[in-house]
């Protein structure tokens, strides 16, 4: 049992008479001290998954079913008051756009201090000193002098450091980073990811990293979930996934990124587009774009099956026919 266990989570949004199944039966387990990456394109349900874990889904959305166990306790049974102590206290979150997670009218130091005061980690002058120490820990130059500065006085990278300081204020057990560097330039991105890796090690945290960038996955994750249209398509250790991806979607994703160190004439591409949630194909949701689609794929949704230790895939190719299975690996 991990520190965070999600079982068969289903989160839907209602749009008129339609039900949009943003997360449709997602299960995973975040182990102690590991970094689990969730990769997927827009609409894959990766952000809704972590917002559900934080119980931050508001109408017209709702968590329809499933369990979310954090340190053995079911978060879905918590009262709102109990949940408030978990959020920012035991499970903290860093969002994509730092400016929208900071209050533009409050000095950054005060915003970090507020977290400490609300979670009763410190009070008064001690809280202020702790906030300054946190600013120093995330490497904000001249932290004491900048305590009173408003967010607008900081650059994007520095703002993200402030948001990270807020997230780390109460030594959380789990840090959820939702596309933490997508809005940042590549040199700043490298610094922020280095900071997150550092902090995770120092504070013994477990990390749930949401990203669409396979480069960030390769450099940071221990294990990976690949999501597509609200479903987990593949789950594996990071090296296993890159060495022998099984799902045609994962293979396609890896093949279609332009490489930094070699040039090709034409890129491989996954045909078609991510379908709108109201137009998911029957059967496997990737069947409309899959290069190895079979009759069965169009009719029935495959289960997520464990092929070898810790490597799971949702694909009919690996169901009973062993020859197909080895063919899939060569196909990488």
């Amino acid at each position: 049992m991990g520190i965070l266990d999600v079982n068969d989570l289903k989160t839907s949004f209602t749009a008129g008479r339609h039900e949009i199944k943003a997360v449709d039966g997602v299960s995973f387990s975040l182990e102690h001290h590991e970094t689990l990456a969730i990769v997927g394109e827009s609409g894959s349900g990766k952000s809704v998954t972590v917002l559900s874990v934080m119980r931050l889904i508001n109408p017209p959305g709702r968590i329809k079913s499933g369990d979310i166990y954090f340190q053995g306790k079911n978060l879905l049974a918590f009262t709102e008051k109990q949940m408030e102590m978990v959020r920012g206290g035991r499970i903290a979150m860093v969002y994509q756009e730092p400016m929208s997670s900071l209050n533009p009218a409050i000095p950054v130091g005060e915003q970090i201090k507020e977290v400490l005061v609300i979670h009763k980690a410190a009070a008064g002058l001690a809280a202020k000193e702790k906030a300054i120490a946190l600013m120093q820990a995330v490497k904000i130059p001249e932290a004491r002098l900048r305590y009173q500065d408003l967010p607008k006085k900081f650059s994007g990278g520095m703002r993200q450091r402030i948001v990270i300081a807020m997230a780390l204020a109460c030594n959380p057990d789990v840090l959820i980073a939702d596309e933490p560097t997508t809005a940042l330039d590549v040199t700043i991105q490298a610094e922020i990811m280095a900071l997150l890796r550092d902090m995770k090690r120092q504070l013994n945290m477990s990390m749930l990293l949401i990203t669409h960038d396979l480069g960030i996955v390769a450099e940071n994750a221990d294990r990976v979930l690949v999501m597509y249209c609200g479903k987990v398509m593949e789950e594996a250790k990071v090296k296993t996934l890159f060495r022998s991806p099984l799902h045609p979607y994962t293979m396609g994703l890896m093949a279609c990124i332009p490489k930094m160190d070699a040039r090709v004439d034409r890129l491989q591409a996954i045909p078609g587009y991510v379908p709108h949630p109201s137009q998911y194909p029957a059967g496997c949701r990737f069947s409309s774009r899959c290069s190895r689609v079979m009759e069965r794929c169009k009719a029935e949704m495959p289960e997520l099956m464990e092929i070898e230790d810790g490597h799971k895939v949702r694909c009919w190719l690996y169901c009973d026919d062993v020859s197909e299975r080895s063919g899939g690996r060569d196909g990488k």
């Binding site: 991105q189 390769a218 994750a221």
Partner: peptide, 14 residues
Amino acid sequence: KALLSSAPVPDPFR
């Protein structure tokens, strides 16, 4: 040089 080396590379074996 810095720009090129800071781009994340999708290869966990590197």
